[in-house]
């Protein structure tokens, strides 16, 4: 049975649709990343689950119980705010103990210390939030949300306020902690690298609609729409037409060239998008492309090249001597056909 179930959630702000008929399930102990560009409704979804917003329609279930009309304090969800929202008038330990007010005093302090130890801040219990670094504040916010052993932990861009290096190190620490504690978590982010690294499952949102969900590798490798393909990593996407289908392989015309790709559900004459990831394009031999822009990135060259209407992004080994032209080959397995009508 799923631990957290959202069914048919709708939410509007005035004339703006924030969440549109969203249905999502999270299993016990699972970490799901809700990912999408800013304004796609992912934070609103978190706020609906925590009870800080009311959905216009749809229901929220936690451990099989309908909590749709419960106030936030009765839901037992942990929420880590993007701004951390640490209480500035309380010490770190009292912040962590805030959600434990129903506990006997001694137990409360013990539990708060336990959580601080978990996040490596046992020495800082007596400090005030303003005396902490950003990374430490983030850990306190996490400890505070985890202390009352919530049904589900909701994280709203928890690493967004940190600098890049700290973000990466805290990311792996967070992942380790979530799995070690077996926490059921919904993680909102607009950072695809963070989502890919942290989550057991991705849910990609776009303009209030759940566009695609699944394990990170599958969503990355097999996007179902150009939007998902572009949102997760870099993508080459060409408008194309299927000219022939045989033995599961399709002959595709794009920009005057003919390519071979797995046919999937495509039939002869269908319009489609031909999608490939830059890392799957093989430089060295094949069709010549004009180099338009090349950027040295240390470990490799990122090259943008063009042949007629076809624009391609490709990675070239760093010791390659780049000329005005680069020859590229496209193995059929590097391609995927995406439906063209569904591109909104």
């Amino acid at each position: 049975m799923s631990f957290l179930v959202l069914s048919g959630i709708d939410k509007r702000f005035g004339s703006v649709v924030a969440v549109d008929n969203l249905t999502l399930e999270v299993a016990q102990g699972e970490v799901v990343a809700l990912i999408g560009p800013s304004g796609c409704g992912k934070t609103t979804t978190l706020r609906i689950i925590s009870g800080l917003e009311r959905a216009d329609a749809g229901r929220v279930f936690l451990r099989g119980k309908d909590v749709t009309s419960l106030p936030p304090e009765a839901r037992a969800v942990g929420l880590v705010f993007q701004s951390y929202a640490l209480f500035p008038h309380l010490t770190v330990e009292k912040n962590v103990a805030y959600g434990l007010r129903r506990m006997p005093r001694r137990e409360r302090s013990h539990r708060a210390k336990e959580l601080l130890q978990l996040v490596g801040l046992e020495e800082h219990g007596g400090r005030r939030p303003h005396q902490l670094s950003q990374g430490q504040k983030q850990r306190v916010a996490l400890a505070r949300a985890l202390a009352p052993q919530p049904n589900v932990l909701l994280l709203d861009e928890p690493l967004a306020a940190l600098d890049a290096a700290l973000r990466t190190s805290l990311r792996s620490e967070l992942k380790h902690m979530l799995h070690q504690l077996g926490v059921t978590a919904l993680y909102v982010t607009h950072d695809q690298a963070e989502a890919l690294a942290l989550a057991d499952r991705l849910a990609v949102m776009r303009a209030g609609v759940l566009e695609q969900e699944g394990p990170p590798e599958r969503v990355y490798m097999r996007p179902e729409s150009p939007f998902v393909a572009r949102f997760l990593g870099r993508a080459n996407i060409w408008p194309a037409r299927v000219t022939e289908v045989r033995d599961g392989q399709a002959q595709v015309d794009a920009g005057g060239e003919t390519f071979t790709a797995p046919a999937g559900q495509m039939r002869t004459g269908d319009k489609a998008y031909l999608f490939s990831r830059p890392e799957d394009v093989q430089p060295g031999s094949g069709i010549p492309f004009q180099v338009e822009r090349a950027e040295y990135q240390g470990d490799r060259w990122e090259v943008q090249a063009r042949r007629g209407e076809l624009e391609v992004l490709v990675y070239v080994a760093r010791d390659t001597l780049l000329g005005a032209e680069v020859q590229l080959s496209f193995p059929p397995s590097s391609f995927q056909l995406l439906p063209r009508e569904s591109d909104r």
Binding site: S50, G51, L52, P71, P72, E73, R75, A76, V77, G78, L79, F81, S83, A85, F87, P88, H89, Y98, G99, R101, R102, R144, A145, P148
Partner: peptide
Amino acid sequence: LDPSLVEAARTLGATRREAFGSVELPL
């Protein structure tokens, strides 16, 4: 005052009135 302070108190089990007394009033 950051409105998410009161929201944080609410998700940690405080009613609106308790949140006023334990978060807004001291601040």
